[in-house]
Amino acid sequence: MEILAPQDDLALAAITEAVGAEALITDAAERAYHSQDVFSTGPTVLAVFRPTDKDMLARGIAAATQAGWPSSRGVAA
């Protein structure tokens, strides 16, 4: 696992508090996998958020944007 920059640590802590650790994937290999599409590989994401319902999705996005964290929409991977 990569070492997170301090501001990333704060953002990750904020969203973890909002949605619970089970909804977040931070494993390095999984993050790399979720940073590719069929043609290109992009910069590696910090975490993958897998909400289980609408309210959790909303809580997670609110927590992330309040922490100033760019969220990138992902469709089924």
Binding site: D37, R50, P70, S71
Partner: peptide
């Protein structure tokens, strides 16, 4: 799934949302 960088963030450290 995309082949037009639909969900590839421009910078490292983004939060990717997977609604699966």
């Amino acid at each position: 799934m995309s082949y037009t960088s639909g969900y590839l963030a421009p910078e490292a450290g983004a939060l990717l949302i997977d609604t699966g």
